[in-house]
Amino acid sequence: MLYQFDGRRPQIGKTTYISELAQIIGDVVIGENCYIGHGAILRGDYGRIVIGNETAVEEGVIIHAPPDDTQTIGRRVTMGHGAILHAKSIGDLAVIGMGAIVSLFSQVGEGSIVAEGSVVKSNQAIPDNVVAAGNPARVVRPINDRDEAMWTYGKQLYVDLAAKYLSLGMTPVSR
């Protein structure tokens, strides 16, 4: 689950849940009250990953830092199932939809949503507080009150789920 590599070692907040089925490798710093889901892979083997508090890395997400650089992921960010991130930065409160790709050295602004299956190209910058969709991703509209309400709920759901996993744990069952 946690692996040291080439002198680089993960640092994990005490109140963060990391699934035993996730792999955290090398120079990865994860804040407090985060959820790191089953099958997630976070590779800080030749770069650094820094994740803010209360962030959800859902099942099957792959995060890889750029070579000799840092990928910064803000606080209360949600990364949906199967997303792939190789970015420069993801702003606070952003959402990366299921199956989205955020490519090398790209940036996603604070409060923005990258829609499911979208592709943010290398070096592309998505501004703050917008919804971006498509391949390549383009801004389709500003964030609205409905978006904020839904994602405030969704983000808290994962903060609470992390705490529940920590308190209850998982118990294997036999058939």
Rank of each mutant, 00 (worst) to 15 (best):
V28S: 04
N135F: 13
V29E: 15
R146Y: 09
D6Q: 13
I73R: 02
N123Y: 15
I30G: 10
S103V: 05
G111C: 08
R146T: 12
H81E: 01
G111S: 07
V77W: 02
T72F: 01
V139G: 15
D147P: 13
R75D: 08
R9H: 10
I62T: 08
T15A: 10
R76K: 12
L85N: 04
R43N: 09
L161R: 04
L168T: 12
V120M: 11
V131E: 06
Y165S: 12
S89M: 11
Y3S: 02
H86I: 03
A87K: 07
V173Y: 13
V114N: 01
D27W: 02
D6T: 10
R43E: 07
I24C: 00
I25Y: 01
R76I: 04
Q4Y: 04
M1G: 12
E110W: 10
G47S: 06
R48A: 14
V102A: 02
V50R: 09
D68Q: 11
S19T: 04
I96R: 01
I51W: 02
R76C: 05
P172N: 12
A40N: 03
S118D: 08
S112D: 10
I51L: 02
Y165Q: 14
V29P: 01
G26P: 09
A56Q: 00
D6A: 14
T55G: 03
Q124V: 05
I25G: 02
L42V: 05
I30Q: 06
D147T: 13
G82I: 08
R8H: 13
